[in-house]
Amino acid sequence: MTIGEIYSLILAISGAAAAGVIGSFALMKRTVIAGDVMSHIAIPGLGLAVIWSINPLVGGGATLLLGSMLIWHLEKKTTLSTEAAIGVIFASSVALGALLIGSNEELIDALFGGFGSISAPEFAFGIAASVAVIVAIWMLKDKLIIGLFSPELASATKINVGLLNLWFLLLFSLTILSGLRFLGALLAGALIIVPASAARQLTHSLGAFIFTSALLSVLSVVFGFLISRAYNLDLGPTVVVVAAGFFALSLLKKKV
């Protein structure tokens, strides 16, 4: 294993831990689908980054920030058109991104990821983002729990539910951004959703759920990395297939 690969793996593991933690709350908040769509909003940003020759993280980050604000506004309205609007955003983001990116090779990278070489600032950003997500969720967890149970009760407890939701979406975006590099825009949401879904099947208490979700997410990355190396497979898809394997196993456990 080269030094570069070790750094990449450390980065991926820290991103996975953050994804597992935020995934457990996204699952309870039932914002999984809106969140998954958000990862696709990174694609036009990646396209613009290619055209303007800037760092893909900057481009992806900019459109993710925009997407968070957009979904935040849509979530405040509880009409049926919200789902339709999210569907439109999803489809148009992928299409616009594909047109902007142009080259097939770069498009595949943007959609499915790959390690490539990671610069020192990228490494530092990735680690800082993952730590920030985990710390912020830890600090917000009490308000999130009350909000999950009843937004109305949260408001009566003087919790600003709108602001809390915005924070959550921004942290969700940051998690996607840190996973974008190695999973790609199509699969970055998977590491948030799949391990959390498996953990929910396996656990009964809140603490165990959050911990197991993070653990399965990290294990998906570690096993995905080892398998992709051994069989010369693409990393992103391999990680997601391993996570899906955990989910399948969790379904078996429930039936026993």
Binding site: I146, L148, S150, H204
Partner: peptide, 25 residues
């Protein structure tokens, strides 16, 4: 509040909920 339609699958106990309010305030 009036009856809350709490998600029956939420892994949140009374203790989680009460502790959350105690810490939040």
């Amino acid at each position: 509040p009036q009856k809350i339609d709490a998600d029956r699958h939420l892994p949140i106990t009374i203790q989680n909920l009460l502790s959350a309010k105690v810490r939040a305030l």
